[in-house]
């Protein structure tokens, strides 16, 4: 359900960029998605096919670059991706981790047009 609204925003953004660039067709869309954003590739694809129908982006190939969450240990400074989903503790020293910007990404990197 979440992807329903955000894919609409994404499709509008892509169409706007494509029109500004004078595109006749959008062939490829490159997305950066952080794992913390909780968006699922397949759902984005499903809703994109729906929203892009009868537009110049219809049939465009979506490319997903997934970015793992990166935490940093408050005690020793070690970077790590929380594993197992039941704690945010540093695998090196057991200190309490803290989220960084990595893993929150949700943007259109580039599009290919003809």
């Amino acid at each position: 359900m979440h992807e329903f609204a955000v894919t609409k925003h994404m499709t509008e953004l892509v169409l706007n960029e494509a029109q500004n660039a004078g595109a006749a067709k959008v062939t490829d869309i490159y997305l950066a998605i952080g794992d913390i954003s909780t968006f699922i590739n397949e759902s984005v694809q499903l809703f994109f096919d729906m929203y892009s129908k009868d537009t110049i982006a219809e049939g465009a190939q979506l490319h997903f670059r997934r970015i793992p969450a990166e935490f940093i240990c408050r005690a020793c400074g070690q970077s790590f991706t929380p594993r197992g989903g039941d704690n945010f503790d540093c695998p090196a020293c057991g200190g309490l981790g803290k989220p960084t910007d990595k893993g929150h990404e949700f943007y259109v990197e580039k599009i290919d047009i003809i």
Binding site: H9, E12, L13, V14, A23, L31, V108, K110, D112
Partner: peptide, 14 residues
């Protein structure tokens, strides 16, 4: 042709 976008998808809402 490649078009660099680098824009947040929820930028409109923001």
């Amino acid at each position: 042709m490649e078009v660099k976008v680098m824009k947040p998808i929820l930028g409109g809402n923001q």
